[in-house]
Structure formats: C-alpha cells, structure tokens
C-alpha cells in the first residue's frame, strides 16, 4: 500500500468517492462552526469594532491561496518526475480553487481596509504580491485552456508552475524592497511573542481547518471531474475512429 497506487485513476476515484462525503461534511461543519462562532460569539475588538469579524474569512482564504499554489507546485513536480496523470489533473483542478481564494482574500481585504486604513487599496507589499499571485493563476489557467493535447498541456503548465513559483517568490521580496506597507506583520505565528488574542484565535483556527478541508474536498471533486472528462474524451475519440 503506497501513495503511488492512487496514480491509477480507477483506484483514485474509488477511494476519493469514499472519502469525499466525509471531507465535505467536515468542511461544512468546520466552516459553519468557525464562521458562526467568529461572527456572533466573539467580542468586538476594542479599536477595530465589529470590522474585525472579517478576519475569519480573510486570513484562512489568504493562507489557502498560497497553499493551493504550493500544492500545484508539488503536483507538477510529481507529474514531471513520475508522470502520474492524476497528479497533473489535480494541479489543474486546484488552480480555479486557488484563484477563487486569492480573490476572496483580495476582496475581503479591500472591504476591511476601507474602514481601517481609509482606503480600498494601497500598494502595500502583501497586497501587491497577492495581486501578482492572482495574475500567475490566470496565466496558468489560460495556458491549460489554450492547449488541446492533454499531455502537452500538462507538461507545459508544469514547467510554467515551476518557473512561476520562483518568480512569485522573487516578486514577493522585490515588492518588499519597493514599498513599505500598511498591512500588519504575521500575527498567527507559533514562535512570535505578540499574537492575536485567544478569543479571536480559536474560532479563526476552526475556520482555517474548514478552509483546508474545503480546499481538499473541492480539489478531489474537481480531479474526479477532470478524470471523467478525460475518459469521455477518449470514448468520443474511439467512437469517431470506429
């Protein structure tokens, strides 16, 4: 029993079919729990008032926006090295989810920034690098769409993902150099001395777990869809040949 067994699409679909309802159910539970807890049962921040509630949406979405790209990077590497089709399809499936999370983080950030900073948008390093990440996602998805042959598309997008990752990190530090920001520093780190207070932290943690599970569920579902679409395509081709 090794993880590589799931390179077999049949095996992957069988197992993910079993896992999916659980992951989706837990995701719904954690999301509802975390958000309801955060929205209704936490005190208001003494300076930010009720606007602090958007934190429970903003932070998990932003975390998953980056982690989705990291997952695509790993999946692309696996595809390049071991050529497992499920891996390439999982990377393809993760991109629209990741871009949605990026958009959620950008939009909730703007909504939060308006009352707190007095502006919807500032060319702050974090904001700017998220915008750049958004563009990377768009380019990646556009390349998948543009190429007809699935193997060629998988290869080229994997190469783009690798190069893009390097440039995304470069851009992250380049914009740091370019402008100092409004956005606060990390406040959820394990090792930092000053962090978010526990009353806000626990519901946020639940919401983060919910977002992770939601991501896993969506990627599993979308990967299944991609596998079935590929199968359908093959069947159609066979029909046309015969």
């Amino acid at each position: 029993m090794s993880i590589w067994e799931y390179a077999n699409p049949v095996k992957f679909i069988a197992t993910s079919d079993k896992v999916l309802p659980w992951v989706a159910g837990l995701a719904a539970l954690a999301l509802a729990g975390g958000l309801i807890w955060g929205f209704f049962f936490t005190p208001e921040d003494y300076r930010q008032g009720s606007t602090v509630k958007i934190f429970y949406l903003h932070v998990p979405a932003a975390m998953m926006a980056i982690n989705a790209w990291a997952m695509m990077l790993v999946a692309s590497l696996i595809w390049i090295v071991r050529r497992h089709h499920v891996s390439a399809l999982a990377a393809k499936a993760a991109a629209p989810v990741g871009v949605t999370f990026t958009l959620i983080a950008l939009v909730t950030g703007a909504i939060w920034g308006q009352p707190m900073w007095g502006t919807w948008w500032a060319w702050d390093p974090r904001l700017t690098s998220f915008l750049i990440l958004f563009l990377f996602y768009l380019g990646y998805m556009a390349l998948w769409q543009a190429i007809e042959n699935p193997d060629t598309a998988a290869d080229l997008t994997a190469v783009l993902c690798l190069v893009g990752s390097v440039f995304a990190i470069l851009s992250r530090y380049a914009v740091n150099f370019w402008n100092q920001g409004l956005h606060q520093g990390a406040s959820l780190s394990m090792d930092a001395e000053e962090n978010v207070a526990d009353v806000f932290w626990y519901p946020a943690l639940v919401a983060i777990v919910g977002f992770v599970l939601l991501f896993v569920a969506l990627v599993l579902l979308r990967t299944q869809t991609e596998i079935r679409r590929r199968r359908l395509h093959t069947l159609e081709m066979r029909e046309r040949m015969g």
Partner: peptide
Amino acid sequence: LTVGLKRGGLLLSLLVLPLYVP
C-alpha cells in the same frame, strides 16, 4: 511555451508580464 499555439500572442503577454515584475 506558446510556440505551438495558433493565437499565442495574447496568452504570451499574460504569461510573460507577471514574470517581468521583479
């Protein structure tokens, strides 16, 4: 990346411009 595509021009700019940022 885009050499095999019929209308790669627009896609090319979408791919390349973010890489130009740094």
